[in-house]
Structure formats: structure tokens, C-alpha cells
Computed example of a mutant assay.
Amino acid sequence: MCVHNSMISDEKTILCDKKANGKVQPWREKKTANVNYFELLQILKFKKAERVSQCGEILEFDVTQEGRMKLAKTWFCKSPLCPMCNWRKTMKRSVQTTKIVEEVIRQKPRARWLFLTLSVKNVFDGDQLDKSLKEMAIGFNRLMKYKKVAKNMIGFMRSTEITVNEKDGSYNQHMHVLLCVESTYFKNDDNYLSQEDWTKLWQKAMKLDYTPVVHIEAVKNKKRNKKSEYTAIQAAVQETAKYSVKDSDYLTGNVVNDLEVVKDLEKGLFRKRMIAYGGLLKQVHKELNLDDIEDGDLVRVDEDSDTEEKAYSIVAQWNWNLKNYYI
């Protein structure tokens, strides 16, 4: 139970950041996962371990007269696997992409939207993952430049996701791509690309000697109206904006296995751009003066209004012994 955004226990005030919609922000859960990640890095003797441990350790919030809280200051480590940072990045991706898509729809109301998933074979270690992710980024750029693809392309958002196969410990790296195309894409056979066409083009772009798994679908709703169509687009945005790597894949409680997975993922994700925009979506990102998702501000990431006047500030600090934030 939240009382004025805090919970009283044993004369200590436990942080409870409750939003206007009633949702309680998972600060404790994310910091707990961050600590587990830090401990694995420490065992692996990563130099950044101490830096990761300090992520979100002290949180300063502005509080309005109505008792609503908004994060005002903290420090985030921005390590690619940090559960705390990835939670904030995912929110930021969603908010930014929603703004971009809304503006693109305003400029191109007749445009159509597609959701494309591109995969390659699983890999089994960090070196292979590093190599595969580099090749996929190059292959994707090559795919977007093919005449058949480019002639109807308005823009895209591309995000890369990595999942861990529980059975054999392999890594599946794939891309989710939200494509915006001209309405002419569906009007004749010269413009339209079937799933088989996309598969062949991806195979060609990646120079593969096997047929990769590719899925393409139009973003649409069963109800034929603008509101339901926009809802479908929003669902595609959320799918594209989700976590690059879920912390449940490398914080399983099996320490030996988790150490191996973290070591591989750290190597594979090093200096990789996991999200990118192209065409009109990239142009709109610049026009809206949005900062970089990978390395930008992770403090102000949501849609909360800044118009409410601040009444006072509170500071919450992580207690390592009690494993919670206290004000």
C-alpha cells in the first residue's frame, strides 16, 4: 500500500513511486537485479563492476502539491546489460518512437506500416555473437538499399534482440523492424514483396548458404478504422521498443551458467548499436530534437507533464543491507 508515495515500516520510509495511473514503479526490483548483475561482473573481474554497483544508488524526486513524484536526479551506469538502465531505455524507446510515428503519420497519412522480423542461425559464444551482430548490421543496411525495398520505403525503426536458448545455451540474435512504406506498396506486383521475397533478399544481403527465418506482416487491425489501425501501430512500436536482452536470461540463479552467459553477452554487445532509425523516421527524430537512446538522458524518459509545480524534493537511497530504497 502506498501512502503519499511512501510506505512506513519500522520507522523507516520505504520509497514507493506511484504514478498517476496507479502503477508503482519497480525501483526495488530493478536495483535488486542490478546488484545481482554487479556481483556477476565482480566475480568475472570486469573493471566496470564498481561503476555498475553505483547505478541508481541515490534517487532524487520532485514532488508536486498533489503528491505526484518525478525523478529529477540520479546517475545511471548505461552498461548494456544493466537491468536498471535497460528498463529506463525501454521506456525512452517507447516514448520517442511513439512521438516519431505520430509525426510521420501526420506527414504521411496514407502510408502503410509493416512489421518485419529478421533472423540468422544461433551462435554459441561471445566471439560468434560479436561477429554475427556486426554482420547483421551490415546486412540490414544492404537490404534497405536494394532497389525493390528502397523504391517504396519511407523510413524504418530497427531494434536488435538477443535471447538465450534454455536447452542448448545458444544465442538467438534477430531484428524487429517497423517499416513505413508508400501506399503503392500493396497496389501491384512490381511493388509488393511477399514473405518469400523478403526471405530471399535477406539471405542475399547476409550472404547466407541457408534459408533464414524471416517474417513479414502488415500492421493492421480487424476493425477498419483509423483508431484501431493506430492501436495496431502502437502495439508494433512496443514490440520494436522492448528490451534488447531480458535480464531473466542471464540472472537465472544458476551462477555458473549466468557467469558464462554474462561473459558472452558483454563481448557480443560491446559497442553495438541496438536501435536505429532510417529515412523519414530518422529525419523526424532529428526535427523533434530527441537525444540518443543508447547514450542519452535516462532520467526524464516518460510522458509525465512538466507543467505541475514542484512543492518539494525527496531523496531515496539504496540500503545494501535491507535491500530497498529508503527516504
Score class of each variant (00 low, 15 high):
Asn122Pro: 02
Phe156Gly: 03
Ser183Phe: 10
Trp113Leu: 03
Leu133Pro: 01
Asn188His: 06
Glu166Pro: 14
Tyr171Gln: 11
Phe124Cys: 11
Val149Leu: 06
His176Tyr: 07
Ser132Thr: 14
Met157Ile: 14
Lys131Pro: 06
Leu133Gly: 02
Leu201Gln: 09
Ser119Asp: 08
Glu196Trp: 05
Gln128Tyr: 00
Ser170Glu: 05
Asn188Gln: 03
Arg158Ile: 09
Gln128Thr: 00
Tyr192Thr: 06
Val120Asn: 05
Trp113Phe: 11
Glu196Asp: 12
Lys151Met: 13
Met175Cys: 07
Phe124Leu: 02
Gln107Leu: 15
Asn141Val: 05
Lys121Cys: 12
Phe140Leu: 11
Asn165Arg: 11
Leu179Gly: 14
Asp190Phe: 04
Lys131Cys: 04
Lys200Arg: 13
Lys207Ser: 15
Asp127Pro: 01
Asp168Thr: 10
Glu161Trp: 01
Asn122Val: 03
Pro212Ile: 13
Trp198Arg: 00
Met144Lys: 12
Val120His: 04
Pro109Thr: 01
Thr160Gln: 11
His176Thr: 05
His176Ile: 01
Leu193Asp: 02
Asp197Val: 14
Met144Phe: 00
Tyr171Cys: 10
Arg110Tyr: 05
Lys207Met: 08
Glu135Ser: 13
Leu116His: 15
Trp113Lys: 03
Leu118Arg: 05
Gly169Tyr: 10
Ser194Trp: 05
Asp125Gln: 04
Asn152Pro: 07
Leu178Arg: 00
Phe140Lys: 10
Gly155Lys: 12
Asp130Tyr: 01
Glu161Thr: 11
Lys167Asp: 15
Leu118Cys: 08
Thr117Arg: 03
Val177Leu: 05
Trp198Cys: 02
Tyr146Gln: 15
Gly139Cys: 07
Thr211Ser: 12
Ser159Glu: 00
Ser159Ile: 05
Gly155Ile: 13
Gln195Phe: 03
Lys187Gly: 06
Met175Ala: 07
Thr211Lys: 15
Asn141His: 10
Asp189Trp: 10
Val213Tyr: 08
Asp209Arg: 14
Gln128His: 08
Leu118Asp: 03
Ala150Val: 04
Leu179Phe: 15
Gln173Glu: 10
Ser119Val: 12
Leu114Lys: 14
Lys145Asn: 05
Val177Pro: 00
Met136Glu: 09
Tyr171Asp: 04
Ala111Glu: 04
Ala137Pro: 01
Ala137Leu: 02
Asp130Cys: 01
Ile162Thr: 15
Lys167Ser: 09
Tyr192Arg: 06
Lys145Tyr: 00
Asp189Met: 09
Asn191Val: 13
Ser183Glu: 12
Lys151Thr: 09
Cys180Ser: 12
Lys204Glu: 15
Trp202Ser: 06
Asp197Trp: 12
Lys151Pro: 07
His176Lys: 02
Gln128Ile: 02
Phe156Ser: 08
Trp198Tyr: 08
Phe140Gly: 04
Leu129Asn: 02
Gln195Lys: 14
Leu193Thr: 02
Met206Tyr: 03
Phe156Glu: 00
Gly139Lys: 08
Gln195Gly: 15
Ala150Tyr: 06
Lys207Ala: 11
